[in-house]
């Protein structure tokens, strides 16, 4: 027996700490089939993703399906991510939103008013949020307050309602062109405001 074989056993496989990596770097690792990187992304975005899916689907089991399919989509297509002109968070949340909208349309669960009756499921607990998530929520809410009520309504109904633009126009009793233009100006303004908010924050110590 050589000394080497009687020496201390190799360290147990400790969970690696990926916390210092950016979302984008994690996606690169996911593209090389690193399931720990997928787990880390899930830890970062699972709560937001599930909250989003619940608000659209208003059903825990369907919301879990949407989140599962979206994260498996992340796993299967992470190598395509860089071809998208998006940050990793946008890419992931876009996948989640799409899956949730697909499911809500398939289930036709859109009869209620998505804004007025979006109760939180009793069993769900609010995530203990990271400071960055809280900060981003505050920034987005502040930005939304600066839109006109019509823009805000078009965005919120469009994003959370699972409705098509024509259904939305019907719901609002407005011509389609008006709805489209509210969505466009509302999103454009929101983007501007978020850009400014980010810039200010980066300049402060």
């Amino acid at each position: 027996m050589s000394l080497l074989l009687t020496a201390a056993p190799p360290p147990a496989k400790a969970p690696r700490n990926l916390a210092h990596l950016s979302d984008e770097s994690l996606l690169s690792l996911v593209a090389s089939s690193d399931d720990n990187a997928l787990a880390e992304l899930y830890d970062r975005f699972g709560g937001i993703a599930y909250g989003l899916a619940l608000r659209i689907l208003r059903d825990e089991s369907l919301a879990q399906d949407a989140v599962q399919e979206a994260f498996l989509g992340v796993w299967r297509t992470a190598d395509r991510f860089l071809a998208e002109r998006a940050s990793a968070s946008t890419w992931i949340l876009t996948l989640v939103h799409r899956r949730a909208v697909d499911l809500v349309r398939r289930e036709d669960r859109r009869r209620g008013d998505p804004l007025e009756s979006a109760p939180e499921p009793a069993a769900a607990e609010t995530v203990e949020e990271q400071a960055t998530t809280r900060f981003q929520r505050r920034v987005v809410q502040e930005a939304l307050r600066q839109l006109t009520p019509e823009q805000r309504e078009a965005l919120e109904l469009g994003y959370y309602g699972g409705l098509s633009q024509s259904e939305l126009a019907e719901r609002l009793g407005q011509p389609l062109g008006t709805v489209k233009s509210r969505m466009f100006s509302g999103l454009g303004r929101l983007r501007e405001l978020l850009g400014q908010a980010g810039l200010e924050e980066s300049l402060s110590p």
Binding site: A49, Q64, V96, T126, R137, V140, Y160, L194
Partner: peptide, 23 residues
């Protein structure tokens, strides 16, 4: 640009802890 703004709307839904078995 619009996608980035649209995805930001996700942050207005309350983040909710999914059941651990989902992960």
């Amino acid at each position: 640009g619009l996608r980035e703004a649209a995805a930001a709307l996700a942050y207005t839904a309350p983040a909710t802890q999914p059941p651990p078995e989902l992960k």
